[in-house]
Nucleic acid binder design. Sequence first.
DNA 1: CTATTGATTGAT
DNA 2: TCAATCAATAGG
Length: 205
Amino acid sequence: MSYKSLPKSFFNKSTLDIAKGLLGKYIIHQTKEGLVAGKIVETEAYLIDDPASHSFNGETNRNKSMFMKAGTSYVYFTYGMYHCFNVVTNKEGVGEAVLIRALEPVEGLEVMKRNRGKKGTEFSDARNLCSGPAKLVIALGITKEHDGLDLLSDDSPLRLAQREKEKTGEKESFEIVETTRIGISKGASLPHRFYIKGSAFVSRK
DNA sequence: CTATTGATTGAT
DNA sequence: TCAATCAATAGG
C-alpha cells in the first residue's frame, strides 16, 4: 500500500474544516518494530477562543507546540498517565489544533496489539485498539518525543498521509457526523467533534 | 505552600 | 462509580 504525505496546502483552511478533512486520512509511524498506521475516523477541533482549549489561557511550556506552524504535532500528558495526539492548525503564533480521537488500524496490527496488550491477555477485537485518544497514542507508540514534529515531512518518523490512489481521482466516500465533544465541561455545547458515520472504530457513538 | 481540575481509561 | 497519578492553575 502506498502513501503520500499531506501537502502543506491541506492546512490552508479553517481548523473546523481541517478537523473534517482529516477524516479518512492516515497517521503513519515508522517504528523500530516496523510500520504502524491507522485511518483517522474521529477528530475534535480546539479553537483559540474556545474555553475548552489548552491554548485559551495563552502559551505555557506544556502547550507551546500548539502555537507552532500548521502540520506540527502537539502531544500532551494528561490525567497523570496518558498522552493525547493533536495536529496543529492555523498560523504560527495562533494556538489551534485538532485532537485525533480514534483510528481504524490498517498496518502493524501485531505491533499495536503488543503495545496495548496487558500482559498475558491477547487483543481479540481490533475495534478497541485505537478507539480513544490515549489508546491510539499507546497503540502507535507515540511518546512525548513526538511533540513538536513536522508531520508533513517525508523524513519524519511520524507523519500524516493519504493513499496514493486519492491522487489519481479515486475517492473513498463517507458521511461525516457532527456532534459535541467528549470529556470537557467548558464549551461542551459546541459541535466540534466529527466522525465517520457508521465506523466501528470510533470511541463513542 | 495546598487544593482542585482535567481534551482518559479500565476495573468494580 | 472510581482510582490511578501529575501538570497547570487558583487561592492563602
